[in-house]
């Protein structure tokens, strides 16, 4: 019996899959930190720290290998 080997479709609701998917995807603005146009502070993103946290959360949630 090889059920464990059969391809499985995982629902997006599985948090670990969501974290995996969101890691390094989506439109990212220039440089991730502060983007300015004509001296105006447009965006401030703590994305580097968030991405590191996503990685940590995904590791915590992932089943042991």
């Amino acid at each position: 019996m090889h059920d464990a080997m059969l391809p499985a479709v995982h629902r997006p609701e599985a948090l670990v899959d969501v974290l995996d998917r969101l890691l390094e995807t989506g439109v990212v603005l220039d440089g991730q930190l502060v983007l300015s146009v004509a001296g105006v502070d447009l965006v401030h993103i703590g994305l580097r720290a968030l991405v590191a946290s996503v990685e940590s959360a995904a590791r915590l949630l992932a089943p042991p290998a």
Binding site: L22, T25, G26, H44, I45, L47, V51, V54, A57
Partner: peptide
């Protein structure tokens, strides 16, 4: 961050289901 990521995905998924949607990177403020 995991809770935020889940909420981000939930909203983007609903928007994408309703029509054209360009997801921004998680954490765009």
């Amino acid at each position: 961050v995991a809770e935020c990521a889940e909420a981000h995905h939930r909203i983007v998924a609903l928007a994408a289901q309703a029509g054209p949607c360009l997801p921004l990177g998680f954490g765009t403020v």
